[in-house]
């Protein structure tokens, strides 16, 4: 069909992106309203979510009741890194969680539904759902970043904006990792273990990346770039020289890793065969 071009259906890449972006507003609006269909369970669940997030933050606080530093990092510095890590993670969790559904959709043949619509398949998957149970962690993360910036004496407008940008870019890194792990569903169908592995990688972003040995540090910088979700962006505020420069490149790292993950997911989807008749 290579020669048959139908000009009316052609759309420039730019206007296609614009169309997807405009539509995203309507997806978000519908998803947000559906979260509030049952407000009491929604609020209760997320208050419990704050307690859940604070439970793991408390472990760091308890540790610092007995020591003054992890490696070279003091409590507010570790809090900032930890805060950026769970900020990125919760943004990923809330907005991208449907990636985890890939395996189930492949099993049920539901990918067909994404393929027949005139919208990007991964976009439909991700935009179609906004998660209901991680808003508590998001609030905790915001509070943690805000507090640690204050304790460090670095709570400037520029730094607050940088933390926001860094968290969005960090969520894109987590999304890339999960897209690759769940994209495996097109090859192996069952992905529970890969998906669990993807969730484990974020643990590496909770503590300063330089406490790890050279090998692990190279791994979380170049291969599974979770260090760009928390440690390096924090260096823009805490560090100087080369580290600070690497930190400023975090959004670039996020875009590159997402470009790869998107390419992989698309290639993997070409293997999709559908089920039944």
């Amino acid at each position: 069909m290579g020669g048959m071009r139908e000009p009316k259906l052609q759309e420039s890449r730019l206007s296609s992106i614009w169309r997807h972006a405009r539509l995203y507003y309507w997806y978000l609006r519908a998803n947000w309203l559906s979260l509030w269909a049952y407000p009491v369970p929604f609020i209760m669940m997320n208050v419990a979510g704050i307690v859940y997030a604070l439970g793991s933050v408390a472990a760091v606080w308890v540790l610092f009741s007995k020591i003054h530093a992890i490696g070279d990092w003091t409590l507010p510095e570790v809090m900032l890194i930890y805060g950026l890590s769970i900020f990125s993670r919760s943004l990923f969790h809330l907005f991208w969680i449907e990636l985890m559904n890939t395996s189930a959709m492949v099993k049920a043949g539901d990918i067909d539904r994404l393929l027949v619509r005139p919208l990007n398949p991964m976009y439909q998957l991700v935009a179609g759902y906004l998660d209901n149970d991680d808003w508590g962690e998001l609030l905790t993360a915001v509070a943690l970043v805000w507090t640690s910036l204050g304790m460090l004496g670095h709570r400037t407008v520029a730094n607050v904006f940088w933390c926001l940008l860094a968290s969005v870019s960090g969520s894109l890194i987590f999304a890339s990792i999960h897209a690759v792990c769940n994209g495996m569903a097109f090859f192996t169908v069952e992905t529970g273990g890969f998906s669990q592995l993807a969730w484990t990688t974020d643990e590496f972003s909770r503590y300063p990346a330089d406490i790890y040995g050279k090998g692990v540090r190279a791994l979380i910088t170049w291969v599974i770039p979770v260090a760009f979700a928390s440690f390096y962006p924090a260096q823009v505020i805490l560090g100087e020289g080369r580290l600070r420069l690497i930190g400023l490149l975090s959004p670039v790292a996020a875009i590159l890793s997402f470009a790869f993950a998107y390419w992989f997911w698309g290639k993997a989807m070409d293997k999709y065969q559908g089920v039944g008749n």
Partner: peptide, 20 residues
């Protein structure tokens, strides 16, 4: 199929504890 992924997760978490 998932087995190795589970093992790698377990190793990764042990590695984090060791360095931490």
């Amino acid at each position: 199929a998932n087995y190795w992924a589970t093992v790698i997760s377990a190793v990764a978490l042990a590695v984090i504890q060791w360095y931490l």
